[in-house]
Amino acid sequence: MRGKILHAIGLAAIVVFTLFPFVWMVMASFKTQSDILASPPVWLFTPTLQNYVDIFADTKVSGAIVNSLIVATLSTLLSVILGTPAAFALARYDFRGKSDLWFWFISNRMTSPIVLALPVYLLAMYANLLDTHIVLILIYLTFNIPIVVWIVTDQFKSIPPDLEQAARLDGADQFTIFRKIYLPLGAPGIAVSAIFSFIFSWNELLYALVLTRRNVQTAPVVATSFMSGYELPWGKIMATGTVIVLPVTIFALIVSRHMVRGLTMGATK
């Protein structure tokens, strides 16, 4: 009995630990400025929607969310289009250089974005691509393609080879087999990898900070840009934070079973 109670307390502690900062942000987003600035902090207060009204009236915030949506969606789409055929080759064929290719994909997961941010900034500056959607969409492919390739390869490997043998005997070529068998049967894995791409692109700050100016600032950039000046608009900041985090949290809950795979590139199954 005592063990059970301790177990329940432990589990409840996990919930409190993981949710507290998140809940605290959401609570602050419903507070007035004077409630937020109250010392010591208040836990019970009359909620207000004013912060949300303010940020949605602010074209800077709504524009940034649209920018984030454009960049994350298109980068995800492109990485699925480019990544799934590569995954097919990696799942189906043995060839020399395969392990080097893997190594390259994994290194992309490990490399600090600052390494690429410097040269890409210069190249984009010379090509007049600074502050455009396209430069962010392309640079996000550096981490999105590897995640798609990894997850989808894994999924493709689990497709039974008999199906393919039968199609082959009917005279189907490899491109048909990819399109008619692998793409439909691999759809769950493709969906999971697309969600990961979206989350990673949506959350990214460093590239967006460096490569954009006014026109294509993404949501995280705008949220951090509030953080200057003397009197910070805390309510608006926390409302913006909530609006940014909520959609990706929902996505993450959908793929929660695959979270470890997505974050480790499959080292542990």
């Binding site: 993981t18 949710l19 900062p21 998140f22 959350n203 951090t224 940014i244 990706v248 929660s256």
Partner: peptide, 16 residues
């Protein structure tokens, strides 16, 4: 709930 911190935008973690 373990998934929530992992999905939270890193910049927003800084704001919090």
């Amino acid at each position: 709930t373990l998934v929530v911190p992992l999905a939270t935008t890193y910049a927003v973690v800084g704001l919090i």
